[in-house]
């Protein structure tokens, strides 16, 4: 109030210097995100000799020798397959278990609801990959050690809080009135869910499934602890880091990054809605 010119620089900055500053920082930040990925791709698309060569030009050699070497390297194909298998299992488990809980939380009021919410929220205060240590013992006893299912169970613990909270927010976004309308029009609970709720939440459920997939795809520690023969890609890479040549690391890195880019692109519309509610 004491400064009547406050509004003047605002209007000026909106059109001139301020705008330039904003766009300059955007370009800078985009470069900060994209250039390292680009450099990884340059290495992945260069021959092994080019990868260890010096100095580098910063342009890819468009030589697929590194990637071919990676693809043909013993254990890589199996590791890729294991990664996909574990991620798919994680996806199915976390949605299959988490979605009903999310629905119950959004639709019913019942004693014990807060206790369950606390249990889910509490998982966030715990370093979850550490679960792999005691579970390794438990899995040996039950025959789940070194299996895709065993690892998927641990990854599901990581993914389930998100699955519950995200599906909770998805279901909460569907007015109860729509379900009630379906009940008055002749549906039982299940039919109403199937015909009215499910079609409306399906895209969101798919997004949270992809999210669960990504969590599993990227997890390193538990995967490295719990698998020996049936390694996932990250477990395989970290186990061989100090013995593998550079071009193998970079090709492996690229193999991990590219699917992740696609996943994030697929769920980009839901990213913010998911986190907006999930952090309440």
């Amino acid at each position: 109030m004491s400064n009547p010119t406050v509004d003047v620089p605002r209007t000026v900055s909106a059109g001139g210097a301020g705008r330039f500053l904003i766009w300059a920082s955007i370009v800078l930040l985009c470069a900060w995100v994209l250039v390292p990925i680009y450099l990884l791709m340059v290495n992945a698309l260069s021959s092994p000799a080019q990868v260890s060569g010096f100095p580098k030009s910063g342009l890819p050699g468009f030589d697929f020798a590194s990637l071919q070497f990676f693809a043909g390297f013993a254990g890589v194909a199996k590791a890729l397959w294991n990664s996909i298998l574990v991620a798919v299992l994680t996806m199915a488990l976390s949605i299959g278990i988490g979605a009903p809980a999310g629905y119950a939380l959004s639709r019913f009021d019942f004693p014990g609801k807060e206790v369950f919410r606390m249990l889910v929220v509490m998982t966030r205060a715990f370093p979850l990959p550490l679960l792999a240590l005691p579970l390794a013992v438990m899995f040996i006893r039950t025959g789940l050690d070194d299996t895709a299912l065993g690892l998927a169970l641990v990854h599901t613990v990581l993914a389930i809080p998100f699955a519950v909270l995200i599906t909770f927010s998805l279901f909460s976004g569907i007015p109860l009135e729509l379900e009630e309308a379906a009940w008055t029009l002749g549906c039982n609970r299940w039919q109403a869910f199937q015909r009215v709720v499910l079609p409306l939440v399906l895209p969101g459920i798919a997004a949270s499934a992809v999210f669960a997939f990504t969590i599993s795809w990227n997890e390193v520690f538990a995967a490295a602890v719990l698998t020996i023969e049936n390694r996932t890609l990250p477990a395989f890479l970290i186990q061989n880091l100090n013995v593998s040549p550079l071009h193998l690391k970079f090709a492996g890195g690229a193999a991990m990054v590219i699917p992740a880019l696609i996943f994030i692109f697929a769920v980009r519309k839901y990213l913010f809605a998911m986190w907006g509610i999930a952090n309440r």
Binding site: P175, E177, E180, A182, T184, L185, C187, N188, P199
Partner: peptide, 30 residues
Amino acid sequence: LPPRERGIAMVFQNYAVFPHLTVFENIAFG
């Protein structure tokens, strides 16, 4: 009895028109 067995129909405050169905399918739902 559940609502579906009471021989009633209801009009809701916020209309509850199903967003994923056409008007025709909304009216035909029941």
